[in-house]
Amino acid sequence: MSMENEEPPAGRFVERFAAELTEAGMQRMASRVFAALLASDSGSLTSAELSERLRISPAAVSGAVRYLNQVGMVSREREPGSRRDRYVLHNELWYETFTRRDQLLTRWETVLRDGAETLGTDTAAGARVAETADFFAFLQDEMHELLGRWREHRAATARERE
């Protein structure tokens, strides 16, 4: 049996994680590009490298990167001395992603509080909207504490590795 056509372990991981991201609502190509960047040693790849690794067209890479850039998951950097762009994962990617989500929750909570007031908190609809606002406020508080604990855990783990 030939091993030539067998997918390398990194490729299997990329496709598996990309499938999970797609299932969670991310665009399919963006999921694959993000997973490939995550699985690369440098955390950055060129369009040509992404095309080759994922066996997709440069146009598919471009569309995926445009989406990932819009949602703040990757950025574009120019290779020094070259005209080629590299697509780079942000430092502290997950922390930044959840921080942006926190900002979204703040906006939703504000709109929901206004909506509850408009509908009247003495109505069933107003009470339901107010409870939803309370949920988002609770979620934000918990997320702040959780992210703080994460930073402490990460710092402690880094000290242990030294």
Rank of each mutant, 00 (worst) to 15 (best):
P8D: 13
L112T: 03
V33D: 01
E131V: 05
L68V: 03
H90K: 14
F98P: 02
R28L: 05
S75C: 08
T121M: 13
R76C: 06
G126T: 05
P58S: 11
T110Q: 12
N91L: 14
G72L: 09
F13K: 10
V33P: 03
W108D: 10
E7G: 02
T46I: 06
A18V: 00
S47G: 12
P80K: 07
E92H: 12
E15D: 11
S75Y: 12
V129F: 04
M29E: 15
R78D: 03
E92K: 11
R53N: 04
R76H: 09
P9S: 03
E15Y: 07
Y95F: 15
G11R: 09
L104G: 05
F17A: 07
Q27N: 10
E77P: 04
A10P: 05
D122L: 02
R100F: 08
D102A: 12
N91M: 10
R78Y: 03
A60G: 07
E52H: 10
R78S: 08
D41W: 03
R101I: 07
L89F: 01
E7M: 15
E49Q: 14
E96V: 05
R12P: 00
E15T: 07
A24G: 01
S57G: 01
R53Q: 13
E49W: 04
R101G: 14
H90M: 13
M3W: 08
